[in-house]
Nucleic acid binder design. Structure first.
Lengths: 143, 143
DNA sequence: TATAAATTGAAATTGAATATCAAAAGCATG
DNA sequence: CATGCTTTTGATATTCAATTTCAATTTATA
């Protein structure tokens, strides 16, 4: 699984004529070891703790590459930080976001995906990606 | 319609103990006269052209009030600018965004809304709002 | 190994958004 | 309508994420 993702990135790098560097390997390893929805800053700190030499800009640049390669997806929630989540082939999930405690629950719904395709087709759109977030209060915060 | 919205804002202001000011009236007028998805900067420039005295900060502050009052909704697309769209009571639409030319098409789908409610219920969520954006290429850009 | 090209990282820069705070304006009261 | 209190405004400074710059380093290839 992780190996497969590394291969995806290597293939992407090769096809783009990118060079293989120690920094990108490290950042990829650490990104793959994280949970969902990590912000660039969070990942940067994680990287920095084991590899103090790696700079800010490199983490930003590298995450953009991961997104281009199809390994990661940028998500904008409402805290002013860009976050990245893992892309799992053939799977797309959306988010329930609790405005009380910032809990994020992922869900997947095939019917919604289908409807999206229909809507896009109706407007002549070729879908590349989508995102959906539902905001509200989770069971805990409702009390 | 516009009058109704002004009333909504006035009622909101009254309930919050906010004062009625020339600036807020002007910004509301101009906001109501705009098309969908205006960025704060765009609105600021519009306001400034007829009322050079009105400041940056006031436009930001006032748009936040409109959102609180339920007249406007913040949307984050992918250009680093916060945009505001008009909220129409009882109606919610989502967006098809063309990554080629930045065309934005609105759509509404009741079935999706229903599914969202079911999903939320399944997780014990109380929905407050949601947003959905589908990214891809519009009919023109596909060619 | 030498060369050319890509990559890195520190620092500077950008740009959106917010905070600060003195001056101005709104509002209630006498 | 003058007074006094509070909110609001706007110029400016500040914050903070993200990007750009560019000299030094590293990688790939011959």
């Amino acid at each position: 699984m992780i190996l497969k993702k590394k291969k995806i990135f290597n293939d992407f790098a090769a096809s783009k004529g990118l060079r293989s560097t120690r920094q990108r390997d490290i950042i990829l390893d650490i990104f793959l070891s994280t949970h969902q929805h990590i912000s660039v800053e969070e990942l940067y700190l994680k990287v920095k703790s084991s590899n103090p030499g790696i700079g800010h800009a490199t983490v930003y640049r590298t995450l953009k590459l991961f997104a281009e390669a199809g390994l990661a997806r940028e998500i904008l929630l409402h805290d002013g930080q860009t976050r990245y989540e893992h892309v799992v082939a053939g799977e797309h999930h959306d988010h329930l976001v609790c405005t009380g405690c910032n809990l994020i629950i992922e869900f997947e719904d095939e019917t919604i995906e289908k409807l999206q395709n229909e809507i896009a087709a109706r407007h002549g759109f070729l879908i590349n990606s989508h995102k959906m977030e539902i905001y509200g209060l989770c069971a805990n915060c409702r009390r």
